[in-house]
Every structure is written in C-alpha cells, then in structure tokens.
Amino acid sequence: MSWDEHDAAVFAASEEITIETMRADGSFRPPVPIWVVVVDGDVYVRSSHGRDSGWFRGALTRHRARVTTWAESRVVDLVEVADLDDALDEAYRDKYAAYRHSFLPRLVGAPARAAALRLEPAERSVLAR
C-alpha cells in the first residue's frame, strides 16, 4: 500500500516527525525525533547514528512503528532500502539545506546511508494523538 498525495504532502511538509518502534510485546518504545523525506511519493527516514541506533535496532526487530507528524499519528511498516542512497542524499540536502553546516552531514554520511527505511502505511485509519 502506498501513500496518497495528501499523506505524502504532510510528510514532505513536516520538518521533523517522531518514530516509536514496536517492541516484541506489541507496545511502542518512547518517541524519537527524526527527519523525513519524500522521494517519488514514497516516504523515507534514516538513522543519523547508523544501524547501531536504538530506534533503528528496534525497527529491524519488528519492522513496525508509530510515526507522528504535525498533523496525525499512523502505524507504519518499515522496509529497509539500500539502492536509493544518491536520491535520498539529494532529498535530504534539498529539504534540510538550512542545516548543511550542522546536522545534515550526518544524514548523508556512510552510517546513515546504511540505515535507511521506507515507511509504508500499515493501517489507513489515523490514530488518536
């Protein structure tokens, strides 16, 4: 299932979202703020700390999370991607150009490139915030 135009636009307009990866018991870990980009209508995130980040390790355990934008919360499936490094770098550089001298280099570096996920809607209904 892919995002509709409205949902993709909400992610594109969100400077930051939070992600709560799912534990084995179905509960969610505490929220972590993260930057998000949209490429060709698909929604992506990267771990700035690479694959060793706590939230990313949790993502690899269940491949399910709750994400919250400024508009709503949704449950998503998390799919690893490895073939979009250049496109994601460009999207991060375009969207977060104001941070090019501070945080942005961490999101286009090797550790983050190895820790990229596509968010796919797991449920169409919006969760209560």
Rank of each mutant, 00 (worst) to 15 (best):
A98E: 13
R64A: 12
L88P: 08
S53I: 09
A12Q: 14
D83G: 15
L119H: 04
V38K: 12
P31C: 11
R46P: 00
W70T: 11
H63S: 14
I17R: 08
V39Q: 12
V10Q: 14
D42R: 15
R100E: 14
V76F: 01
K95I: 03
D94R: 14
D40F: 02
M22K: 14
E90P: 00
H101A: 12
F11V: 00
R129E: 13
V38P: 04
P105R: 09
I19A: 11
A112C: 09
F11G: 00
L88D: 11
D94I: 00
V75R: 09
D42H: 11
L127P: 01
G50Q: 06
E123G: 02
E16Y: 07
A122W: 10
V126M: 10
R23P: 00
R46A: 07
V43L: 08
A87K: 13
H6R: 15
F28W: 07
T21R: 02
V108T: 07
A115W: 08
P30I: 01
R46D: 10
S27L: 11
I19F: 01
S48A: 15
R66D: 03
A71Y: 05
P30A: 04
F56I: 09
G50K: 07
D7Q: 12
V67Y: 04
M1K: 11
F11A: 06
A110W: 01
D25R: 11
T18V: 13
L60R: 13
D4Q: 09
F28D: 09
D86K: 13
D52I: 12
V67H: 02
E120K: 08
R29T: 09
V45G: 02
T68W: 02
A114C: 09
A128T: 14
F103K: 13
L78T: 01
D7I: 02
A112V: 03
R113L: 12
T21I: 04
A12T: 09
A87H: 11
V10S: 10
S14P: 07
E72H: 10
A116K: 08
D7N: 08
E16D: 03
E80R: 15
L60I: 00
P31T: 08
L119G: 04
R51G: 02
S47G: 12
A13M: 02
D7V: 00
V43D: 06
A65D: 01
V81P: 03
T21A: 09
L88G: 06
R124H: 08
I34C: 06
M22D: 11
E20P: 03
P111I: 12
A59E: 08
S53C: 08
G58L: 03
P105Y: 05
L78E: 03
R100D: 13
G109C: 04
L127E: 14
L107Y: 15
H101G: 12
S47N: 12
D85W: 11
G58F: 01
A24R: 14
S47V: 10
V108N: 06
R93V: 07
E120H: 02
D42C: 03
A97V: 10
D86S: 13
H49I: 01
G26D: 11
D89N: 15
V108C: 08
R100H: 14
S14I: 05
W3Q: 01
A9Y: 00
S53E: 15
A59P: 05
A65V: 00
A13W: 02
E123R: 09
V126T: 15
R66C: 03
S2V: 10
D40T: 06
D83R: 10
V67E: 05
T69R: 10
